[in-house]
Amino acid sequence: MRLLLAFSSAVDRFNDWVGRMVYWAILVAVVISAGNASVRYIFHNSSNAWLEVQWYLFSAVFLLCAGYTLLRNEHIRIDVIVSRFSERTLTWIDIIGTVLFLLPMAIGIMYLSLPAVVDSFVRNEMSSDAGGLIRWPVKVLIPIGFLFLILQGLSELIKRIAFLQGLIPNPAPKKQDAHSPVEGAAE
């Protein structure tokens, strides 16, 4: 289990690094969007390429940060229901959900996306919009993003099993309710 936890830690560090690097894509997208809008209104000129770059950056943020989001335990949950369960029950729900849903879905999407990526690269697929960009760079983000998600899913699975074995503290402790007072806070 020590080797698996070392793998998990490496995956966590990698996805944390990817998430922090991709933050900058948001800033770049905002600057490009503001610049493109300014040029359009001031000079009455626009570029489909700049618009597509914005969409490519949005795609990069969404796809490449899926693993980072899972690492931070920020994926959507039905808190009203799961808040009533014990940490062990929540851990079992996470394990079952990862094995039955997350990993098969992510592996399937990654596998099914590969032929489209290869076809786009081989054909040097271009956008159908005037002045548009080549498409394969954004399409290659699909299998890469899902690979990052698969790796993080495996990391989370390892951590949950280690928690149930008593080897590590809970990797996903219950979040404090936003409306309840924080322990030890002055009243």
Rank of each mutant, 00 (worst) to 15 (best):
C65M: 11
V22G: 09
P115E: 06
P104C: 05
A60V: 03
L112D: 11
R13Q: 11
I76R: 03
D119V: 02
S120D: 04
Y68H: 13
M110G: 08
C65H: 01
D94L: 06
G132D: 04
A37L: 14
E87A: 14
F121I: 01
T91F: 03
V99C: 11
W50R: 13
L90A: 05
Y68Q: 02
L57D: 10
L112H: 10
E125Y: 03
V80H: 07
R13T: 15
I107R: 01
G131A: 06
I78V: 15
Y41I: 09
S120T: 09
W50F: 15
L27R: 00
V61C: 14
F121C: 01
D12Y: 01
L102C: 07
P137S: 06
D16E: 13
F101C: 15
T89Y: 00
F62V: 13
I142A: 03
V31W: 10
V28I: 15
Y23P: 00
M110D: 04
E52C: 12
S128N: 08
E74M: 03
S46T: 12
L100W: 09
Y56D: 11
F14G: 09
N48G: 12
V140H: 00
S33H: 14
V18H: 05
A29I: 04
I26M: 14
I107H: 01
L70W: 01
L90Q: 13
N124I: 06
T89D: 07
G97N: 07
I76Y: 05
L133M: 11
S33N: 14
G67K: 00
L141T: 05
I26N: 04
R123V: 02
A130E: 12
A25D: 04
P143E: 05
S127A: 10
S47K: 10
F58H: 10
V118M: 09
L114G: 00
G108D: 04
P115M: 06
D129P: 00
S59T: 10
L51T: 12
Q54P: 01
N48F: 14
F43V: 05
A29E: 13
W50H: 05
I93E: 03
L103C: 02
D12I: 04
E52G: 13
L51R: 07
G67A: 09
R13S: 12
S86H: 08
G132T: 03
S33A: 15
R40G: 06
D12C: 10
F14C: 15
W55Q: 15
E52P: 12
M105D: 02
E52F: 11
I95E: 07
R84A: 08
R77Y: 00
L70Y: 04
I42G: 05
S113I: 03
M110L: 14
S113D: 03
S120G: 07
L70D: 07
V61Q: 06
S128L: 12
V28S: 07
V11L: 05
I32Y: 07
I95F: 08
V39Q: 15
I96N: 05
V39L: 15
S86Y: 04
V30W: 13
A130W: 02
I107N: 01
S38V: 12
M105S: 10
